[in-house]
Structure formats: structure tokens, C-alpha cells
């Protein structure tokens, strides 16, 4: 069994924290893992992505071949669209709906949302507002991870939740509680 994930967003949005939690959960569950990250120039407000491959069997390539990703997890709606050729037709997009507009030619948001809604499997939510309204302003990425949890297959939501607690433990109890709340909000939004 394997799950191939493309994590994406804009430099500085915290996609590597999501990757860290997924990596921790995968390691604790005894899975094989490869995770290709982006460091360097693109982190300065440009598009960033990370290829995360989880499997019960040995993994060869660090990069996911086209058409094989099971999930695209995106912190930004237009960025979710960037990697569609990598998504399997049975795959799912889990994305934030609120755009990050830092370029002059950002497309019409309605067109982006329409294109996302036309996909076979998509989960979309304004994670930033959900995080703000529930007083966990820094937890938007964990809301997104919670939304993704029911669709991961290879990892249970419980294993992910436990990994959230372990990864943020060094930052103190308050941070752990906030991130767990954010995670649960996302999980509930996905109807689980």
C-alpha cells in the first residue's frame, strides 16, 4: 500500500510543518517514507511544493511520477491547481479556499474556485477564517491537515493526531492544545 502526496502553497505558509507531522506519523507507524522539499530561492514568497511518499514497501524515486499522486494538499487555491497533472484521476485535492495574492496578475478567484469545484474529488474550506474564529490563528495548516486525515488511507486520523501532539510538544502545552483543536476542526469539517 502506498500514498503519494503533493503538499503545496506559497513560501512561508507552513507546508513543511504539515510534512513534519505526516513524516512523524509515518515513522511511528513503521511506514517507509521519502520527502522531497524545496529550500532556497523559491521560499521567498514564490510557489513551493513538497513530494511526500508513504508506503508499506520500499520507495524508489524521491519524486512522484505524473498521474500518481493520491492527494494534493494545498495552503492556497491557485497553487492546488498547479499540480493537477500529477494527480491520479481517483485522487483528491484538499485545499484552502482563501487566496494569497502577492502577484499583479493573480487570476479571477471565481475562475479558480470553479475549476477546483469541477474536479472529481475536492475538499475546500476557508481554513484561515476557521482558525481565526476559533482563536487558533497560527493553526490554519493544522486545520488543513485535519481536513485531509480521513482521506490518507495509509495513516489513521488517530495516528496523525498523536503525531501533532509529539511534533509540537517542544513548543509547550498551549501550542499543542491549539494545534490539536485546529486539527479536530479540520477533521470535523470533513464530516468525520
Amino acid at each position: 500500500m502506498k500514498t503519494d502526496i503533493i503538499l503545496c502553497g506559497v513560501g512561508g505558509q507552513g507546508i513543511l510543518s504539515i510534512a513534519t507531522v505526516l513524516g512523524e506519523a509515518a515513522t511511528a507507524s513503521g511506514l517507509q517514507l521519502k520527502q522531497a522539499e524545496v529550500h532556497g530561492m523559491s521560499q521567498r514568497g514564490g510557489d513551493v511544493q513538497s513530494n511526500l511518499r508513504l508506503s508499506t514497501e520500499p520507495i524508489w524515486s524521491d519524486l512522484i511520477p505524473k498521474g500518481q499522486a493520491d492527494l494534493i494538499i494545498s495552503m492556497e487555491p491557485m497553487e492546488a491547481l498547479r499540480y493537477l497533472p500529477y494527480l491520479s484521476p481517483e485522487g483528491r485535492v484538499v485545499t484552502a479556499s482563501k487566496p494569497l495574492v502577492n502577484i499583479p496578475d493573480y487570476p479571477d478567484l471565481a475562475d479558480i474556485i470553479a475549476e477546483l469545484e469541477a474536479l472529481p474529488n475536492v475538499s475546500m474550506m476557508d481554513i484561515e477564517t476557521v482558525a481565526l474564529e476559533n482563536k487558533v490563528p497560527r493553526g490554519a495548516n493544522m486545520v488543513l491537515l485535519g481536513m485531509t486525515a480521513p482521506f490518507l488511507g495509509i495513516l489513521t486520523p488517530e495516528a496523525l493526531r498523536a503525531a501533532v501532539a509529539r511534533v509540537f510538544a517542544p513548543k509547550g502545552e498551549a501550542v499543542v492544545e491549539a494545534d490539536l483543536l485546529a486539527f479536530d476542526l479540520g477533521l470535523q469539517a470533513s464530516g468525520k
Binding site: 530561492m41 514568497g45 491547481l81 493537477l84 497533472p85 494527480l87 484521476p89 493573480y106 474536479l119
Partner: peptide
């Protein structure tokens, strides 16, 4: 032969890196 993915998106703009 590789697997077929979804078609490329139509609504997409380049997002180059920039000064903070």
C-alpha cells in the same frame, strides 16, 4: 508508459519568488 494525470489547469499564473 506513464499514468495519465488530470489535465493541466486553465486558471494559473506564475508566482516567482520576491523580496520579503
Amino acid at each position: 508508459k506513464g499514468a495519465a494525470g488530470l489535465p493541466a489547469a486553465k486558471t494559473l499564473a506564475a508566482r516567482p519568488p520576491q523580496l520579503c
